[in-house]
């Protein structure tokens, strides 16, 4: 155990969790530097860092790093963290390692919202699309939460309602795509695969603001979340208000997924994989929120860089990349579960 203190206040963490967290933070800084420096335009590390901080260093760094690479990399980090947190909370609440906002309809709802906006307004502004996606995600989330509500939120109902709502949303999206003209449909499809391309400082600010509001709430309820993993009765007997805690946590998880999807479009598998990897590396008994966030950030930034490093004609959006890597992992989890091993 390790205690981090500021005066009277402090938190206790396991040495291993702390070490993994620090390591992930280092990796993240390394990846960020890599993302700022590596690319077609040559920029020195020093110039890249200063340009990212908004200091004028002259062309090409001011634009390439300051307006393109930095916001894109930070978007990947923040959205990855949101997805990691959202997945971690959902998996813990449902006591199911396969639970993830990708599978419970929130991402699909965001897609429907975005495509509907593109169809109605026919504007390709990322902002209008993002607003549509956010509205779609919030509406589907509200629907899922209402359907899962039986005086308290029933975790299994949350998953089942989510799957059902997700299918309806997906069908709607596909119907809309067939009704759009080819140009708009192309735009919509481009958005639907999930990408960090063209994201600006405004996107970064939005994602950061959502995290600044929701992370303290999640951390405040982290102990309740861990305790609820031992069963509702045990948690209640240990002084946790199960109904209230679960409602707050479910709403936070859903909001994070909605906000993440609004920024980048649907990016699959990060929310599924990051919490599981965080658990495996920290060997934490029970949900590891901050490691999941860091893991999600590192995974999405890595995926984003990897997809950019592919040869020009092989480059594809990061959403496809995460799916290509995440799907085999999911199959592996299912295979292990079917063999009765620990999940």
């Amino acid at each position: 155990m390790r205690v981090l203190r500021i005066g009277q206040l402090g938190v206790t963490t396991h040495r291993r969790t702390f070490a993994v967290g620090m390591l992930l933070l280092l990796v993240l800084v390394g990846l960020l530097l890599f993302a700022l420096v590596v690319g077609k335009a040559d920029v020195t590390v020093w110039d890249a860092v200063r340009a990212a901080l908004g200091i004028q260093v002259g062309a090409p760094a001011d634009f390439i790093v300051g307006q393109v690479r930095a916001p894109r990399a930070l978007t990947a980090i923040l959205v990855g963290a949101m997805l990691g947190l959202s997945g971690a909370v959902l998996q813990s609440l449902t006591r199911n390692p396969l639970a993830s906002p990708d599978f419970i309809g929130i991402t699909m709802g965001a897609g429907t919202g975005a495509v509907l906006t593109l169809w109605l307004i026919a504007a390709s502004s990322l902002w209008i699309t993002a607003a549509g996606a956010a509205a779609g995600a919030l509406l589907t989330s509200a629907l899922i939460l209402v359907l899962a509500w039986r005086r308290v939120i029933v975790p299994l109902r949350l998953i089942l309602a989510g799957i059902g709502v997700g299918f309806v949303a997906q069908a709607t999206t596909q119907y809309l795509l067939t009704r759009m003209d080819v140009h708009d449909a192309g735009n919509a499809l481009g958005w639907l695969v999930g990408s960090t391309t063209g994201r600006t400082w405004t996107h970064v600010a939005f994602a950061a603001a959502v995290l600044v509001v929701l992370v303290p709430v999640l951390l405040g309820f982290a102990r309740a979340l861990r305790t609820m993993e031992m069963g509702d009765d045990t948690a209640q007997a240990l002084g946790v208000s199960v109904g209230r805690s679960r409602a707050v946590l479910a709403v936070c998880s859903v909001l994070l997924a909605a906000a993440a999807t609004a920024v980048t479009g649907p990016i699959g598998f990060i929310a599924l994989v990051a919490p599981a990897l965080a658990l495996r590396t920290t060997r934490s008994a029970g949900v590891a929120l901050l490691p999941s966030a860091l893991m999600g950030a590192a995974l999405l930034l890595t995926a984003d860089q990897a997809s950019q490093l592919m040869p020009q004609d092989l480059q594809f959006p990061v959403g496809i990349f995460t799916a290509a890597v995440g799907a085999p992992y999911l199959l592996w989890l299912v295979w292990r579960a079917s063999r009765g091993g620990p999940s």
Binding site: L9, M230, A285
Partner: peptide
């Protein structure tokens, strides 16, 4: 309770430590 759930991978001491939950406060080590 009749069938409590042990979180995967939890050690005996960690489990016992969970019993301290009602005595702990936010941001108190």
């Amino acid at each position: 309770p009749q069938s409590p759930i042990a979180p995967a991978g939890i050690t005996v001491k960690e489990l016992v430590a969970r019993g301290r939950t009602p005595h702990q406060k936010l941001l108190r080590p």
